[in-house]
Design a protein around this nucleic acid. Structure first.
Lengths: 159, 159
DNA sequence: AAAGACCTCATACTTTCGGGTGATTTTACG
DNA sequence: CGTAAAATCACCCGAAAGTATGAGGTCTTT
């Protein structure tokens, strides 16, 4: 049984959302049964609806989760040799920048605010702050304007 | 007499600083006379010192004033044709940027903070804010990062 | 199974920015 | 000489940015 739980571990959030969605819809059915015109709905019908909605919840939860982590590159072009002659990926590797940090850096160097970056990346403002803070320390700068300068001088990103 | 005052008008600050410096040093002399070992210092000696210090005050005040307004261009290279093919001065004229605003913009695009710009230009933080605010409205941007982007896209400044 | 890298998010706090307004002082020019 | 543009500075206030700390969750590797 422990192995089963371990197997279900990565899907915990999906399952949670599914259950919540299912229960919510069961509640809706109940309310409809109690107060609206479909008075003859029996428990079987309710159960079927609940099952369908639960499935929908699973699908939706999976979709949501998948979209969050498998929507990698924005339309920002980069990678491969860059304008400064150096190899972009080599520079990134040398600085120890993670993919997410590079992504934040791209948006940042385009002049976006933290909130706008958060919206674009489907994460919270705090997460963006964390990424940016890490980027700053890795680039050895204090402000975003300095980060832009650094990025330009390093030939990172598209200019 | 009115014309004399008008003549002295531009030097008001210099005179003010001179007087303050002179009085301060007279006070120092007095204190030294009262409490330290040079008990035989007479009023003539004190007066000479005061006069010398007043002259020093005038010189210092002039220097300070002169340095403020005759230290024009920082080491930032620009002017004339730029990297983007357009004429830099023409762009500046089209945007209606004043010399001081261009100077601020240079420092800003180098990643300096407002306070650092103020220190570099020998003006107060508030003045820098005013300049930057005007620059933003003329560039039609809201943030300094966007201003940098704009400057880059317009081909202004070096780089 | 344990470890480490990454990602995510929160909370609290301080500092910096940016907008708005108003005022005085230089400077340049006709 | 007077006016207009530029430059200087101040004060207030809200928003944004940045710092520090802690804490889970996920995934890969050993």
């Amino acid at each position: 049984m422990a192995s089963l739980l371990a197997l279900l571990q990565p899907m915990r959030r999906i399952i949670l959302y599914s259950i919540v969605l299912g229960l919510l819809l069961v509640l809706m059915q109940y309310v409809q049964y109690r107060f609206l015109f479909i008075r003859r709905a029996d428990s079987v019908y309710t159960g079927i609806v609940a099952a369908v909605c639960c499935a929908a919840g699973i699908w939706g939860g999976w979709r949501w989760n998948y979209a969050r982590r498998h929507t990698p590159a924005p339309e920002l072009p980069l990678n491969l040799p860059n304008s400064a002659g150096t190899n972009t990926e080599a520079v990134i590797a040398r600085l120890g920048l993670t993919p997410r940090e590079v992504e934040v850096l791209q948006y940042l160097s385009k002049g976006l605010s933290n909130q706008e970056i958060a919206d674009a990346m489907f994460v919270s403002l705090n997460t963006v702050k964390t990424h940016i803070s890490n980027v700053f320390s890795k680039l050895d700068v204090q402000r975003r304007t300095q980060a832009i300068q650094k990025v330009k001088s390093l030939g990172l990103l598209s200019d």
